[in-house]
Design a protein around this nucleic acid. Structure first.
Lengths: 140, 140
DNA sequence: ATTTAACTTTACGTAAACGTCAAGAAATAT
DNA sequence: ATATTTCTTGACGTTTACGTAAAGTTAAAT
């Protein structure tokens, strides 16, 4: 790798099928996300090429989905990771939204902790009943 | 409250509008949940009356939704909280499902923790940029 | 050069989770 | 007794998040 070459991992681009494998989603899904402005693949001719930025965004999208956020909610926050190229006014708004999202996620984590505790209790009760009914402790 | 009266908070039933207020959902939602067998309100004539059991189930439904589970996923687990009236075979299955759900929720909590960390970092970067651009620290 | 594989757009279809009338029955208030 | 409110059952509509099939285009392989 010489000085002239600016190529590095950051510059690596992926075809749509590569992205599908990377994130375990369909091509339809990726095109859909592009249409909804969650991804911005560049074009070589007609074909899409997904950049490092898209990969980062996809990671966040999957994360957001996991936590039950809608694509629209996710989209609004994605700008938080690209704030370089936005107006200060815009960034401020996104920042505020980010703070709200953060507190929402912290709240959710708390509730999740409680729900887990409840579920554990309930599972124990269930287990006790099964044992009392003569279940084999082995398969529990 | 005398000895003969068996009435207590457990016996309290709610009309559909009371339930709506209690859980901040529409009547349509409650009827929909009944149609999907997540709730089992008793009937006084044609009208629905929601029991303590339904209230408990609703709490779990709301919780499940918050964490991104589908109604069908939620329905399957609800039996975990009514296992008294089921066959041992059934309970065993529900118990197994509960264990899986538990580990899924614990995993989610972990990921949520990481996502929160990431978001905090990103928010800090964002804040720095805003301050460097001369934003008033007051409104951040 | 031609087959093949990967990709494209367009467009209709679908499942989940309700919303929103419409029309009638039942309970409550006056 | 009658008006009003609350509730009921359909039944069609809507949004989200894609699936899927059709028909054409581009790139890669032979």
């Amino acid at each position: 790798m010489n000085v002239i070459s600016t190529k590095n991992k950051e510059d690596k681009v992926n075809t749509i099928t590569e992205m599908c494998k990377l994130f375990q989603v369909s091509a339809r899904t990726l095109r859909f996300y592009e249409s909804k402005e969650l991804l911005f693949p560049i074009r070589r001719g007609q074909h899409r090429l997904f950049t490092k930025s898209d990969r980062g965004r996809m990671k966040l999208i999957m994360q957001g989905k996991r936590f039950g956020f809608s694509l629209e909610e996710i989209r609004q926050l994605l700008n938080l990771y690209n704030f370089g190229d936005h107006r200060t006014r815009q960034i401020k708004q996104t920042y505020q939204l980010g703070l709200k999202r953060l507190s929402s996620m912290e709240q959710q984590k708390k509730e999740l902790g409680l729900a887990i505790k409840d579920l554990k209790t309930q599972l124990q009760l269930c287990k006790d009943l099964l044992l009392k009914r003569g279940a084999d402790a082995q398969d529990l």
